[in-house]
Design a protein around this nucleic acid. Structure first.
Lengths: 155, 155
DNA sequence: TATTGTTATACTCTATAACTATA
DNA sequence: TATAGTTATAGAGTATAACAATA
């Protein structure tokens, strides 16, 4: 995939995220919840409703399982999340956000998901177009990754 | 800035970058150049032609000056960049990429700037539209930040 | 036998404080 | 006096290896 337009679009997206106004957002989020970036990232992948097996988190972040253990310790100590046993497989422990954790996560999302002021350079019509085009790409991405996962299931 | 469309567009952009196919790209880039993420990020903000004062890098990354020193040591030791004195202010040391460093940087960019396959879900026409809309936002972002900097010049 | 999570340990990354040189 | 960079040191972040429990 590398038409000229796609490359420039992709590159501009990355520039907006890494150099743009949103640059310091992760830092803001950290100060808001009073924890390091690792803790903020953890909040983003947890939920009060869907228990998340610790192993899944290690896989997603490409980190060691022992590190997820220490993250989970931190989260529990600050009462942001708690370990819960898996209903059928007793080896597995899952993490779920507490009420306090869900509130912290909402704070973080409010900071990270607020569009940079520069978006007001587009008309409402253009914004809708942009949203739809991006959604199309993101949906395709999800489909492609799902089928890739499927192909490697036996691994 | 928070119309519904802007929020969703922004959120989708972030999802693509953080959860999408491009998820492991930084890791790939690290393996390609044989260094940690910090070194790869350093390469991205250096150039063979424009000498970059070390202080600027610390400011941009929001890190301590001493850490830039150790980064510069690593870069020089691997012959990816070298320190050069500032032409007029002898306190300042700048960093410039060596030939080897420029090659490494190109490798990194080839990996990071390659659009995810999902972009092929859009027609050439749609890609051009997407590119233009994003460029408009990115340009506005740059203008806004430039004037913000201007207002705080006296700080 | 393979997988999940924990513990103890070691290594890497990054910041703090004290210092030198220049402006 | 204030700023740029360095050094030595300490602390946070993350991985490795050996282990217990469950599948």
């Amino acid at each position: 995939m590398s038409t000229e337009a796609a490359q420039q679009a992709w590159r501009t997206m990355q520039r907006l995220l890494s150099d743009g106004e949103s640059h310091g957002r992760m830092g803001q989020a950290c100060r808001a919840v009073g924890g390091p970036p690792s803790l903020v990232k953890a909040l983003l992948h947890l939920s009060p409703d869907e228990p998340r097996p610790m192993r899944h988190l290690a896989d997603h972040w490409g980190c060691d399982a022992s590190y997820v253990t220490s993250l989970a310790d931190d989260l529990e100590q600050q009462e942001l999340a708690c370990r819960r046993p898996h209903p059928t497989d007793r080896r597995i422990k899952t993490l779920v956000l507490t009420e306090k954790g869900a509130a912290a996560r909402d704070q973080v999302l409010a900071i990270l998901w607020e569009p940079p002021p520069a978006f007001s350079a587009l008309s409402e019509r253009e914004l809708a177009t942009l949203r739809d085009l991006l959604a199309k790409v993101a949906d395709a991405d999800e489909v492609l990754r799902a089928s890739a996962d499927f192909l490697h299931l036996g691994r």
